[in-house]
Write a protein that binds this DNA or RNA. Sequence first.
DNA 1: CTTGCATACCTCGTAGTCCAATGTATTATC
DNA 2: GATAATACATTGGACTACGAGGTATGCAAG
Lengths: 111, 111
Amino acid sequence: MSGGNSAFMAGVPELLILKLLSAREMYGYELAKAVQVASGETLSLGEGVLYPVLHGLEAGGALRARTGLVSGRRRIYYSLTVRGRRRLQALSRRWQQVAGAVDAVMGGAHA
Amino acid sequence: MSGGNSAFMAGVPELLILKLLSAREMYGYELAKAVQVASGETLSLGEGVLYPVLHGLEAGGALRARTGLVSGRRRIYYSLTVRGRRRLQALSRRWQQVAGAVDAVMGGAHA
DNA sequence: CTTGCATACCTCGTAGTCCAATGTATTATC
DNA sequence: GATAATACATTGGACTACGAGGTATGCAAG
């Protein structure tokens, strides 16, 4: 029960989404492409991951949604709230810590 | 079905175990402590993770097990097989790729 | 006009990973 | 003879992430 979440490496999709949205407002489909480009075609967010995370973040007050209509197609633009920015910082720190620790084990170098 | 494993960041515990065992033979309990030390007390492999992974790796032919008895206590020492070394290299490459891609998104720098 | 492709959204079912809790047994400490 | 550290192990479930499938619009080709 309760929040005590851990899971070594969880939350990376969320991190990437928050990071990209912190630069500029984007809509889902655009976001998916942006992840591919920004990661050098190495990572790709499937829609089965993307949309649930987006909705979860919005429900949690980390994202603000705005609906637009461009040439007949519905788009939902997302941008960070203050809370989202805080969440980004927390996840970012966590990622750096964990990735750094893994690299320390792998490389032998220790902080 | 089928092997298609993905999961962004999965397999890190396995990677750490293989890496540490590639340096020297160790037994489970020792391994758990070694992860803590090598990661600067940042990571910690619970026993509920450690032993199942160890058994899985052995079953998959990546590890060789040797039973020892030290002052009444049973210890199971594990060491890498050739297959284990190959598995380590594969997981290691994968980690570098994914971690690098995440850092690329986070940092803006692109290869 | 209808077939096919790209855009754009969404959800369900589940596979797979990891974890906390719990259990056994031995030795050492007090 | 209780407490703690060592040393192994399993079970049950939580949670993430993902593939597959579904709806709908616009556009180009034939």
